[in-house]
Write a protein that binds this DNA or RNA. Structure first.
Lengths: 338, 338
DNA sequence: TGCTGGCACTCACGTGGGAAGAGTGCCAGG
DNA sequence: CCTGGCACTCTTCCCACGTGAGTGCCAGCA
C-alpha cells in the first residue's frame, strides 16, 4: 500500500499537471507544495508511483504525468467535490429560471454547463421510459388517418401519424380517446401495455383493426429507445485540448456525433451520485483520451435522465464534478416547478 | 475585362488548389491543364489576375491561391453545378425514405449532407412563418391551466402551457377549441392574428381574459422567431480544414453553436437556387474563412426552410452545390409525401 | 530504515547555418 | 503578344550543437 506522503505526492502531481498542462518534475513539486521533504525523496516516491502505474513520463528526461489509473485514484481517494460558491449557484438558478419550455431548459442547461466547466456539455432529455403519461390526444386528419399526440408529465410532446386499415368515425375516435385517457393518464409508461391490452374488445369488430394499429403505434412511441435525445454544446472548448490537434480532436468530435454511443455511455453510469469515467474506462475508442463526468437529474427524487461533460482526462475533477452536480440539482428544481 | 484565357487560368488555379491544398505555380499549371501556352505566359496572366485581386501569394516565392473574389468569379462565371450521379441520387432517396417523422427526416438529412460533402451540414427546420395551421388542440390540465398544442401542415408540433387568469370550464374550452379550429385550420400563420381578433367577444365576460391569454400565447408561438431550430452535423469534418488548427477551427465551432447567427445567415439567402457565400461575404467574423452553400427546400413548390453546408473557402464548389441541391430536392419530396 | 545532497547521464528543444528547390519577375527576341 | 532564359527571393528541410530540465543512483547521515 502507498504511504500517506506518496498519495500526497500523487495529488500534487495531478493538481500541478491540471494547472500547467506540462509534465511536472520533482523540484517544481517541492517548491509549489510544502511536502516537507527534499526533491530527492520525492523522486523516490515518484519512482514508486510509476512502478505502480499511477504516473508515467512521456520521455526519459521529462517530468511525470498522471495515468488514467492515477486520475482514478485521485478522484476516488484524494479529492472531493468542490462545491459551487453562493454567487455561482445564484447565477445558475437565474439563468435556468428564464426557460419557457422543456427544450429551452435543455438548451440553457447545455450552454450553462459548457460555460461553467469550459468543456463539452452533454444533456440527455428526460427519458420517456420512467415518465408517466399526462394525456393522449387523437386527431382525425382524414377518414383513415389519425394523428396521435402523446404528452408526458415532463411536458414532452411526441406525435405520430397512424394510417388506419379502415376508415374510422369521429365518434369511435372520441370513444377511443376517452377510454384511452381514462386508463393511461397518470400511469407509468411501463404499465401502459398491460392497461390497454383488452381495449380493442370494447369496439365494433370493424374498428378493432384500427384501434390495434393506434395502440401499437402508441406502444412503439413509448418504448422507442432512440427517442432519448441529446443536446450537445461547447464543442469549441475542444480546441483547448492539446497542441497536437487534428488527431486528438477528430475522434472526439466523431464520437460526439454518435448520439447512440453517448446515450449508452451515460446510461451505464448507475451511481446515484456523480460518476466519472476516465480515459480508457470509456468503452468508445474515440473517447479514450477523455473523461466523462455525468450525473442523473430529474424533477422528483428520481433521476429521469443524465447530463454531464466530456473533457480531457487532464481536467479539474473536483470543480467539474461540483459544477455538474449543481447544474443537475437546479435543473431538477426547475423541472419540478413547471 | 479579363481575356478568355485568363479566366481559364483562374479556373485552373481554383481547381488545382482545391485538389492539392497547396499554392499552385505556373509550371504545374501548364503541366496539368493543356492551356496551350508556356509557363511564362501563364505567369503574366497570373500577375494580371493578382493585380485585379482574384489571386494572391502567401509569400513571395510561393505559388498563388485564389482570393474570396477569385472564388466568387469562379462560382459565378467559370463553374456550373455538378449534378449527382444516378447511383448517388438513388442512395440519397433510399436513405431519406426510411424516416419515421419530421425530426428523423432532419436528422437523416444532416448526416447525409455531411457525409456527401464531407463538410459541416446545417439544416433548418421547416419555418413556421410560411406554414399553415393544421389543427389547434386545447387540453385542460387543471382548472386554471391549459395546454395549447399547435400542429402545422409540415407535421410539426409545438406545445405551450397557459396559466389562465380565471378558472375555465370544460364546455367553454370545447367551445373555444371548436371556434378556433374552424377559423384558423388550413390558414397561413400570417393570417391568424386577424382571424382571431374578435374571438373573445363571443364568450362570457368572465372567460374573456382567459380566451385572450390563450390567443396571445398562440400568436406568440406563431411568430416566435427562435422557434426556427437548427440541426448541425459533421463537425468532425472541420479537422480536415487546414494544418494550423486551433485558430482556424475554434471560431467556426463557436459560430456553429450560435444558432441565431446561422439562422440569420441562412435567412439572408434570397436566391431561389443555390446560394454561395464566400469568406468575408459572411457577416459573422468566425465564418470569414469559410464558405456557406445553402438552398431552400420545402414540401410544395415553396421553400419553407433552408439547408446547407459550411466548409473552407477552398472547397469543391460545383460538387458541393450539386449535393446540396440534390438533398434539398429529395427532402422536399419526402416532406410532400408524408 | 528512510531522508538528503551530490553527481553523472539522458533526452527534448531551440538555434543557426547551409543547401535545395520552387516559383517569381523581367527582359530580349521571335 | 508569346516565349525561353536567367537572376533573384524566399521558404523549407536538415543537421549539428549547446542548453537545461529532469532523472537515477549512491554514499552519507539521522
Amino acid at each position: 500500500m502507498l504511504s500517506e506522503r506518496r498519495l500526497q505526492v500523487l495529488r500534487a502531481i495531478v493538481q500541478d499537471y491540471v494547472g500547467t498542462e506540462e509534465p511536472v518534475g520533482s523540484k517544481a513539486l517541492t517548491e509549489r507544495h510544502n511536502l516537507g521533504v527534499s526533491p530527492a525523496t520525492v523522486r523516490n516516491d515518484m519512482a514508486a508511483l510509476e512502478d505502480e502505474g499511477f504516473i508515467a513520463q512521456p520521455h526519459t528526461s521529462a517530468g511525470r504525468i498522471p495515468t488514467d489509473k492515477g486520475y482514478r485514484l485521485f478522484v476516488d481517494k484524494l479529492a472531493g467535490v468542490k462545491p459551487m460558491t453562493a454567487p455561482e449557484r445564484r447565477a445558475i438558478q437565474n439563468f435556468l429560471e428564464g426557460s419557457v419550455d422543456l427544450d429551452d431548459v435543455v438548451a440553457r442547461t447545455v450552454r450553462l454547463l459548457a460555460q461553467l466547466t469550459r468543456q463539452v456539455a452533454v444533456v440527455q432529455y428526460p427519458s420517456l421510459t420512467r415518465s408517466t403519461v399526462r394525456h393522449v390526444e387523437l386527431l382525425s386528419l382524414a377518414p383513415a388517418r389519425v394523428m396521435l399526440v402523446l404528452i408526458t408529465d415532463t411536458g414532452r410532446v411526441e406525435q405520430r401519424m397512424v394510417d388506419c386499415p379502415a376508415p374510422f368515425g369521429e365518434s369511435a375516435l372520441a370513444d377511443l380517446r376517452a377510454r384511452l385517457n381514462s386508463r393511461v393518464a397518470g400511469r407509468r409508461f411501463a404499465d401502459v401495455p398491460k392497461l390497454v391490452e383488452d381495449l380493442p374488445d370494447a369496439f365494433e369488430p370493424e374498428d378493432r383493426g384500427t384501434v390495434s394499429t393506434v395502440l401499437s403505434t402508441l406502444l412503439e412511441t413509448l418504448v422507442e429507445e432512440n427517442e432519448e435525445r441529446l443536446m450537445i454544446g461547447g464543442t469549441a472548448n475542444l480546441t483547448r485540448f492539446g497542441h497536437d490537434f487534428p488527431f486528438t480532436i477528430r475522434p472526439v468530435l466523431e464520437a460526439l456525433e454518435e448520439h447512440v454511443v453517448l446515450l449508452k455511455l451515460l446510461g451505464e453510469a448507475k451511481d446515484p451520485g456523480v460518476t466519472v469515467r476516465i480515459g480508457h474506462e470509456n468503452a468508445h475508442e474515440g473517447l479514450n483520451s477523455t473523461s466523462v463526468v455525468s450525473v442523473g437529474y430529474g424533477s422528483g427524487g428520481e433521476a429521469v435522465a443524465k447530463l454531464g461533460v466530456v473533457g480531457p482526462t487532464r481536467m479539474d475533477y473536483p470543480g467539474t464534478m461540483g459544477a455538474v452536480r449543481a447544474v443537475a440539482r437546479y435543473v431538477g428544481q426547475i423541472l419540478a416547478e413547471s
